[in-house]
Amino acid sequence: MSQEKRLAYPFKIRPLQGELQEQMKRDFEGTPSGLAACNHWGFKLMGKVTDDLLEDIYNYPLEERDVWIMTPPKSGTTWAQEMIWLLANDLDYEGAKTPLMPNRWLYPEAPAIVDKDGIRKFLPADPEKRTITTNSMAGNAHTGARRFVKSHLPLSMNNPRLLDVCKVVYVARNPKDVCVSYYNHNRLMATHGFTGNLELFMQHFMDGNIKLNPCIDHMIEAWNLRHHPNMCFIFYEDMKRDLKSQIRKVAKFLGKDYSEEQVNKLAEHLHIDNFKKNPYVNMEHFKLQGVMHKDRGNFIRKGKTGDWKNHFTPEMTEKFDKWLEQKLKGTDLKFVTELDQQD
């Protein structure tokens, strides 16, 4: 394979300043370095992120047989990862009996997210359980095997040739449920360590001042490229409404054809009641490593559309709706926030 010319990272890193940065450090104990805006619309990573690291990600080596998943956080990423991996690997359920990450999927931006200073106090005393696998998750070397790569970064921060070389499945989810799910995730993960309540988190979410956010700009960027032949754009809500149809859609995108019986079996494997019990996707090893709090729930939570209604007050809903309407001006991207029926 010919050596590609290394590209300069095209954006300036801009750490948050003053009292705003100090608030980020207080509200997110897992990120004592605060946050930095890292692209043209302010996508946030940890405050210590470097140009060299982002340039490495921007030049991540690509192979035609690689399969990527791109999503904002808490948009059904893990659910879709399991579906994609099984579809691409001829429904190898035995091969899926190993942790989704880092064994089966790579995560290039992991070193740009984890502020190691912030989680040292959570690490267990046993040094053998203290492994933080950011470098092994990144895995940017060519291995010879087909690679499966997860990214929460927007397209503008990944290799600009990505869509021209690799298959990319993009999953979008309605922002209300994303906000509630990400709130719980930021409390669960020591790498985030959020200390406040949902109302405060929602304000940070709307302001875009949370790691791996803002999410609306992220989705609009991908939505505008949804017709590219190497992109399969799906909605979390469509997976909840009719999982089998989305399985067939992604299978076709990956050049696979499965029988009705095989689709039914995969849908059963992915059903949320079974998925929550699957130890290979529920990231329990993170609790042993100190990356995830042991007493704040599990990585796979409810998996429901419309759960936001159980958490937003009427005042929060009104505020969020006005913000979302403003964010979506000028785009035809729309979201489903409730379903009459779901699995």
Results as ranks from 00 to 15, higher is better:
Met1Asp: 15
Lys5Asp: 08
Ala8Met: 12
Pro15Asp: 05
Leu16His: 08
Leu16Asp: 08
Gln17Ile: 11
Glu19Asn: 12
Gln21Asp: 08
Gln21Glu: 10
Met24Ala: 13
Phe28Trp: 08
Pro32Ile: 06
His40Pro: 05
His40Cys: 14
Gly42Asp: 02
Lys48Gly: 15
Lys48Met: 11
Thr50Met: 07
Asp51Val: 13
Leu54Phe: 09
Asn59Lys: 07
Pro61Tyr: 07
Pro61Cys: 03
Pro61Phe: 13
Arg65Lys: 11
Thr71Phe: 02
Pro72Ser: 14
Pro72Glu: 05
Gly76Cys: 07
Trp79Glu: 03
Leu86Asp: 00
Leu86Ala: 01
Ala88Arg: 09
Asp92Phe: 03
Asp92Thr: 12
Pro99Met: 06
Leu100Asn: 11
Leu106Tyr: 15
Glu109Ala: 15
Ala110Lys: 09
Ala112Asn: 04
Asp117Trp: 12
Asp117Arg: 15
Gly118Val: 04
Ile119Val: 13
Pro124Cys: 03
Ala125Leu: 11
Asp126Gln: 05
Thr131Tyr: 15
Thr133Asn: 15
Asn135Ile: 11
Met137Ser: 07
Asn140Gly: 11
Asn140Met: 04
His142Gly: 08
Arg146Pro: 01
Arg147Tyr: 04
Ser151Asp: 03
Met157Ser: 08
Met157Val: 05
Pro160Met: 10
Leu162Met: 02
Cys166Gly: 10
Lys167Gly: 03
Ala172Ser: 12
Pro175His: 06
Val178Arg: 03
Cys179Gln: 02
Ser181Phe: 01
Tyr182His: 12
His185Val: 09
Asn186Gly: 11
Leu188Asn: 00
Met189Arg: 10
Ala190Arg: 14
Asn197Leu: 04
Leu198Trp: 02
Leu200His: 15
Met202Ala: 14
Met206Asp: 01
Ile210Ala: 13
Pro214Cys: 02
Asp217Pro: 07
Ile220Cys: 10
Glu221Arg: 10
Trp223Phe: 06
His228Ile: 06
Tyr236Phe: 02
Lys240Tyr: 06
Lys240Ser: 01
Lys240Pro: 00
Lys249Glu: 12
Glu261Cys: 14
Glu261Asn: 15
Val263Gln: 01
Leu266Pro: 00
Ala267Gly: 04
Leu270Thr: 05
Asn274His: 00
Phe275Gln: 00
Pro279Thr: 04
Met283His: 08
Phe286Ala: 10
Lys287Met: 04
Gln289Ser: 15
Met292Phe: 00
Lys294Met: 05
Gly297Leu: 11
Phe299Ala: 06
Phe299Asp: 00
Phe299Lys: 05
Ile300His: 00
Arg301Leu: 00
Gly303Asp: 01
Gly303Arg: 03
Thr305His: 05
Trp308His: 12
Pro314Asn: 08
Thr317Asn: 12
Glu318Thr: 14
Glu325Cys: 09
Thr331Arg: 08
Thr331Gln: 07
Leu333Glu: 05
Phe335Glu: 08
Val336Ser: 12
